[in-house]
Design a protein around this nucleic acid. Structure first.
Length: 581
DNA sequence: GCCGTTTTCGGCCCGACTGTTTTCAGTCG
């Protein structure tokens, strides 16, 4: 069982316990344990074996015992017991907006409702309104929520939601009443997927109603879920939910911190505040007798608990508070640190633009170097290059370099397929003519974990690979990562001095936060690349940088922040090896 | 279930909105 499997069990356990009036704090403890296990930097099972699991904060005796049981038997006796007592469909009902544990339990016990379909039927037949706290309006809202649940089922890619957030912010900023505005929540923390868009506005008290009114009437809004004086919720025309909060300017910093989250980070910060006799809420920092001590700027929140400012991307309660307290917060990489882009395609294979057009865009963006890495021959559906075509492209690149005088410097590269047996698609006699070799898996995603791991490790150990492309192969919302022991892969990369890619393409963002930290801790360089198939894709670099920041990466961890000469020196060993092959 | 410069017991973040209440529970973030 990997960390995600174990986390899932604890999430389910917490959900089921909620139906059975188990002490709320116990449920929360399981849920927080699930979240922590999901994000552990190494396999939970290894930590259990080594006895280090219990050292993790908020993982105690009870959780360790259950993890051991899980490893031994594959399940938990108490989970099986609860599953027998609560029908499986209740978990889905719990995800309907407006249905919490108490209401779900109520409709189950009173009306025997155990599925979303049954809930919908009961609402339509007006059979819910007899229950306490259920009325005609609640039935109506539930029907709408069920429809929304079926439509939206889940989360949006950050790269889908972010432009919406930008557009809404741009429009509201034009209102004279709006003093400050920013998107918070998962958008500001740059998580790869977001459930909704959180907007925060600062305005004078007397203007709050007017701002809320303007917001719910924006042209993008399809329907209004809630419309209060300080809080509104709407759905946009494409289904995404937007929450707007309105606060007075003196509360801006406190609210910005509060609505940026994460929830776990906020709880930890508030816990520190409580110990200092302070109260922090979205309106400010308060001392004895509720005396207001600050909250206009976000920095004041951290200062109140004795910490330096913590970047939003780090706020997941994954050690950032301890790091801040000890003065060892990372100096996160920024987009302007990026000097080159080392993965892109042209219309020689499956790209949409010519070599010249791609390089022209890189020049416009001020890149110092770019690597042209078209597909290799094995990827026939993308018209992969054989040695002859690759050499012809190389001559074109040489000519372009002469013409542009090295602004940017264009590197001859390839994205070579890693074949089923772990060999690299092109031989050393061809690869030695190149400046940059990316190797990627594009087939046989379903191999068993051990085999997939062996395959990728073998490709790295060939010694000809500069960078492993999109190491997990996931496509957000479409394809799960392939089963692979990433720690073993990273260890192989470290041994042979290869980099791993952070693929900035919106569907991929692969690697992501947990892996990036693992790579950093193991000393494996990361390359942030756009995998561009068209000139405008090069703008996706920002998504890659955001993801890198979530992985605590500093410029020194990212190889393409290096000047070209140093980059070449760092990977020269592959090319020396090739020359002698 | 977890945790401890106030504690091995007794706390555990906090406020807005809604619908149904005749004073508030449930839900959400």
């Amino acid at each position: 069982m990997d960390n995600a499997d174990i986390a899932k069990v604890f999430f389910e356990l917490a959900d089921l316990m909620e139906f059975h009036q188990v002490v709320d704090f116990k449920v929360r403890a399981f849920r927080s344990a699930a979240q922590i296990i999901e994000n552990l930097p190494e396999p939970c099972t290894d930590m259990l074996r080594e006895g280090t699991l219990a050292e993790v904060p908020r993982i105690g005796e009870g959780i360790v015992r259950r993890v051991a049981e899980l490893c031994r038997t594959g399940t938990l006796a108490e989970l099986e017991e609860l599953r027998k007592r609560a029908p499986a469909g209740l978990a889905e009902i719990l995800r309907i907006d407006g249905m919490g544990p108490r209401s779900t339990e109520l409709v189950w016990h009173e009306l025997g409702i155990t599925t979303v379909d049954e809930l919908e039927a009961a609402a339509k037949a007006q059979r819910l309104r007899g229950l306490p706290r259920f009325g005609a309006k609640k039935e109506e809202k539930l029907l709408a929520a069920i429809a929304a649940h079926r439509r939206a089922s889940g989360r949006y890619k950050l790269t889908q939601a972010y432009p919406h957030a930008e557009a809404l912010v741009r429009q509201l900023r034009k209102l004279p009443e709006v003093l400050r505005i920013e998107a918070c929540g998962t958008i500001r923390r740059r998580r790869d997927t977001v459930g909704d868009i959180d907007l925060l506005v600062a305005t004078r008290q007397e203007h709050a109603v007017a701002v809320a009114e303007r917001f719910v009437h924006l042209p993008e809004v399809r329907d209004v879920v809630a419309h209060g004086e300080t809080k509104c919720t709407v759905h946009l025309k494409d289904g995404i939910q937007v929450d707007l909060r309105i606060v007075p300017p003196e509360s801006w910093g406190a609210a910005l911190h509060y609505f940026t989250g994460s929830k776990e980070h906020n709880i930890a910060i508030r816990g520190l505040a409580v110990r200092r006799g302070l109260k922090i809420n979205e309106y400010g920092i308060f001392g004895e007798d509720d005396q207001r001590l600050g909250g206009e700027e976000e920095r004041e929140i951290f200062a109140a608990v004795g910490l330096p400012y913590i970047e939003p991307e780090l706020r997941e309660n994954r050690g950032e508070i301890e790091a801040a307290a000890e003065g060892r917060l990372p100096h996160l990489v920024e987009e302007r640190d990026i000097r080159g882009d080392l993965h892109m395609h042209t219309n020689e294979t499956d790209g949409q633009a010519t070599l010249e057009a791609m390089v022209a865009e890189a020049r416009r963006l001020g890149r110092e170097y770019v690597a042209i890495t078209d597909h290799s021959q094995a990827l026939s559906m993308a018209l992969g290059l054989d040695p002859t075509r690759l050499r012809a492209q190389g001559r074109q690149i040489d000519a372009l370099n002469d013409k542009l005088g090295g602004r940017p410097h264009v590197l001859r590269g390839i994205e070579a397929d890693i074949l089923a047996d772990g060999s690299v698609d092109l031989g050393p006699e061809v690869l030695r003519e190149l400046d940059w070799v990316v190797a990627s898996v594009h087939s046989m995603f379903g191999l068993p974990r051990a085999e997939q791991t062996r395959r990728i490790v073998r490709a790295l150990e060939s010694g000809v690979v500069d960078c492993l492309g999109h190491p997990t192969g996931r496509l957000i919302g479409q394809r799960e990562p392939y089963a692979v022991d990433l720690e073993a892969v990273l260890d192989a990369a470290r041994r042979v001095g290869a980099a791993v890619e952070l693929n900035a393409f919106p569907d991929r963002l692969d690697l992501w936060d947990v892996h990036l930290r693992m790579a950093q801790q193991m000393g494996v360089p990361v390359v942030i690349s756009t995998d561009s198939h068209a000139p405008f894709h090069m703008l996706h670099m920002r998504y890659g940088v955001w993801t890198a920041r979530r992985g605590w990466l500093e410029p020194k961890d990212v190889a393409n922040t290096l000047p070209l000469r140093e980059l070449r020196a760092r990977f020269a060993h592959h090319h020396r090896q090739l020359a002698h092959a």
